[in-house]
Simulated scan of single mutants.
Amino acid sequence: MKAFAGMAILLATTVTHAATPHLSEGVLVDDHGMTLYAFIGNGPPDQKSCEGDCARNFPPALAEQADRPSGDLTLMAMANGTSQWAYKGKPLYRGLIDKKPGDRHGDGLNQAWHTVQP
């Protein structure tokens, strides 16, 4: 039981202190090293630009409550009360097409999704 309680505390600490998006190999990545994308299409992402369910295929890069903006990385309030990371005002998304850190399979997808290269 003590091991379970210790693990719960460790997980809670990890979740509340997620890392700010940072550079890796010239592109912005999340706290797990996964590539972040910006949508450059007209209007919000739609089924055509996402090849299906946008919310599932390109979920928002959510910020934790303790996260704070830094330079060009800002936080955007979402309708559900959470915050999404943004770079120079463009919301950031994770691409579920990527399976491991360093993957960039969403870059250029439908001429609407691009890696963020500060």
Rank of each mutant, 00 (worst) to 15 (best):
P45F: 03
P45H: 07
P45E: 11
P45S: 06
D46T: 06
Q47I: 05
Q47F: 02
Q47R: 15
Q47V: 06
K48F: 00
K48N: 06
S49N: 11
S49L: 12
S49A: 14
S49T: 15
S49D: 05
C50Y: 04
C50K: 12
E51Y: 07
E51N: 14
G52Y: 03
D53E: 07
D53C: 06
D53V: 01
C54T: 10
C54F: 04
A55V: 13
A55N: 13
A55H: 13
R56V: 09
R56D: 07
R56L: 11
R56Q: 12
R56A: 12
N57M: 09
N57Y: 01
F58M: 14
F58I: 08
P59W: 02
P60N: 09
P60I: 13
A61M: 02
A61Y: 01
A61P: 03
A61D: 07
A61T: 03
A61Q: 06
A61E: 04
L62T: 09
L62K: 13
L62G: 05
L62I: 12
A63P: 03
A63T: 05
E64F: 04
Q65F: 08
Q65I: 13
Q65S: 14
Q65E: 15
A66T: 15
D67C: 07
D67T: 05
R68P: 00
R68Y: 01
R68C: 02
R68T: 08
P69L: 01
P69W: 00
P69Q: 01
S70F: 03
S70L: 04
S70N: 08
S70A: 07
S70V: 05
S70M: 04
G71K: 01
G71R: 03
G71L: 00
G71F: 00
G71N: 02
D72G: 03
D72V: 01
L73S: 01
L73Y: 00
T74P: 04
T74F: 03
T74A: 11
T74Y: 04
T74E: 12
L75E: 03
M76D: 11
M76S: 06
M76A: 14
